[in-house]
């Protein structure tokens, strides 16, 4: 035993090997450099705003997904849930138009519908998973099909469109902002800050990690495992609602193809960011980097003509697998 005295200065947190921390950041930096070299307008304020706004929907959902995965769960239903909530929101707002008229109240009503529907949908997933003890994969695979089918049915196979006047009134929620920063970016940033604090600095975050790491240990440590899990699903549902609120004014419509594959993009962002898919460890800031990496690849492919944008999915796939391999190698070394 070395008789090293414990210094009062807290040692730097070196729990994780540096590669798993540096990897995603490095990849992001490389992408930015590549993008800047390939197209001069890449670093323009307009393009950055555009990339971030588009990434915000997935990003807001991915923050919630980080908690679900950290607590040992999974949610495949978020894309369908977003489409369903968008459809519901549009239907309710259109229906309330004659009585409320175009104005702030009807927008608030739509937002409230989205948030409540999101929380309820999340609680429902969580209820089946925690109280009834059914695999998260099965439950959310089921609800994914249900929501997708419901929105198709509500739209009668076509598109649900927000009333034209309403759409014009609601548009600024996506396209305007403060000091040139679009609203979705601001909301995304707020969600990230709250999420990061929640994950790394509060009891809830620790309880999520403990639950995902070993639910038995968490139970024996007086952690309410079921309630923690339920809360992660409800929180994810709420954030899907928030993302939908930001998404609906962009197109003003919802259809069967709204939010397709969002769940996979969100899960991919979480994993690229270094959260462990089996649960037990998650970091919100990593998820943000994951979202940005996915968004930038899309943007770079669109701005340059070296590689067809149709190969976007293939490149994302390679990156996801690479990210996991890198994490594993780092773990083996550490």
């Amino acid at each position: 035993m070395t008789t090293q005295t414990v210094t009062t200065r807290t040692p730097p947190p070196r729990r994780l090997p540096s590669m798993s921390v540096l990897g995603p950041i490095l990849a992001l930096v490389i992408l930015v450099i590549v993008g800047a070299l390939m197209n001069s307008s890449f670093l323009s304020a307009g393009n950055i705003n555009n990339v971030l706004s588009r990434s915000a929907f997935i990003g807001i959902i991915a923050v919630g997904m980080t908690f679900v995965i950290t607590a040992g769960g999974l949610d495949l239903s978020v894309g369908s849930m977003a489409a369903f909530i968008a459809g519901l929101m549009i239907l309710v707002m259109n229906a309330a138009l004659p009585s409320l008229g175009v104005g702030v109240p009807i927008i608030l009503l739509g937002m409230a519908v989205a948030l409540v529907a999101g929380i309820l949908a999340g609680l429902l997933n969580g209820f089946f998973i925690t109280t009834l003890g059914i695999e998260a994969f099965i439950v959310t695979l089921g609800s994914m099909g249900i929501y997708r089918s419901l929105v198709t049915w509500l739209a009668d196979g076509g598109t649900l469109s927000l009333d034209f006047d309403l759409r014009t009134f609601y548009r600024p929620v996506y396209f305007d902002g403060i000091l040139g920063i679009a609203w979705p970016i601001i909301v995304f940033a707020a969600v990230v800050i709250v999420g990061e604090i929640l994950m790394s600095r509060t009891r809830f975050g620790r309880h999520c990690a403990a639950t995902g790491s070993n639910a038995h240990v968490a139970h024996y440590s007086a952690v309410n495992v079921d309630r923690t899990r339920l809360a992660t699903y409800a929180m994810l549902g709420l954030l899907v609602g928030v993302a939908t609120i930001m998404y609906v004014p962009r197109l003003g419509s919802a259809s069967a193809s709204t939010g397709v594959l969002w769940e996979l993009e969100a899960i991919a962002a979480v994993i690229i960011g270094g959260t462990v898919l089996k649960g037990g460890f998650g970091r919100v800031w990593g998820t943000v980097i994951g979202v940005l990496i996915l968004g930038l690849i899309d943007n770079i492919l669109n701005l340059t003509d070296l590689v067809s944008p149709y190969l976007n999915g293939a490149i994302q796939g390679v990156i996801i697998v690479l990210a996991v391999i890198l994490q594993r190698e780092a773990k083996a070394k550490g």
Partner: peptide, 10 residues
């Protein structure tokens, strides 16, 4: 090991 401690945590 299975109920007392989170073995992967510090």
């Amino acid at each position: 090991k299975l109920r007392g401690l989170l073995l992967t945590k510090g």
